[in-house]
């Protein structure tokens, strides 16, 4: 397979950029990869059909600016992301620990499709910002079933959209 490696020009930590720039930066990142593998590199079918990729306009906003991550509201509430859960954590364990901060409107505790154990993360929805904010503040770094859990917001405001 003949792959031409271009020398990209930086970018990647500069999020103050327009849609075309954002697209270009991902392409530049790809160019920097030193190991390329797969039939996709010699297959042109992708360029002839619609999708989410280059050329599409999905109301491109900006991504997060790492220094200031501000939570974003979801359609019916505020979603938090819990990570580094012990593999035997149950929905009840999560409910017990997190309903102290408010009524849990939704809980996704997804499984590893191969092992049947949980994948290690959970998503929890609260109705109000205050409840979710408190859960993040109080539960981050806490111990659950012997595992130190990480609790953050799931969705954040884009750099320019605020």
């Amino acid at each position: 397979m003949d792959i031409e490696i271009h020398a990209g020009e930086g970018g990647g930590d500069d999020f103050e950029m327009g849609e075309a720039d954002a697209e270009r930066s991902v392409e530049q990142m790809k160019d920097k990869a030193t190991s390329k593998k797969g039939r996709g590199f010699v297959d042109s079918s992708r360029s002839t059909r619609p999708g989410v990729g280059p050329g599409d306009r999905l109301e491109d906003g900006e991504g997060f600016a790492s220094a200031r991550v501000q939570p974003a509201k979801s359609v019916e509430g505020w979603i938090i992301f819990i990570n580094n859960l012990h593999e035997e954590t149950s929905e009840e364990n999560i409910m017990d620990a997190f309903q102290e901060y408010g009524v849990i409107k939704n809980l996704h505790l997804n499984q590893d499709r191969r092992t049947g154990f949980i994948k290690g993360y959970a998503l929890v929805e609260y109705e109000s910002f205050k409840e979710a904010d408190e859960a993040v503040a109080r539960m981050h770094g806490k111990d659950l079933l012997g595992s130190t859990i990480q609790v953050t917001w799931a969705f954040v405001k884009g750099n320019r959209r605020a």
Partner: peptide, 24 residues
Amino acid sequence: RYANNSNYKNDTMIRKEVVVHPAI
């Protein structure tokens, strides 16, 4: 970014975009 196009029953393309937390 997420796109789902099913022409069965309704022919609307669903396109959604959201910024996820770095932890995700």
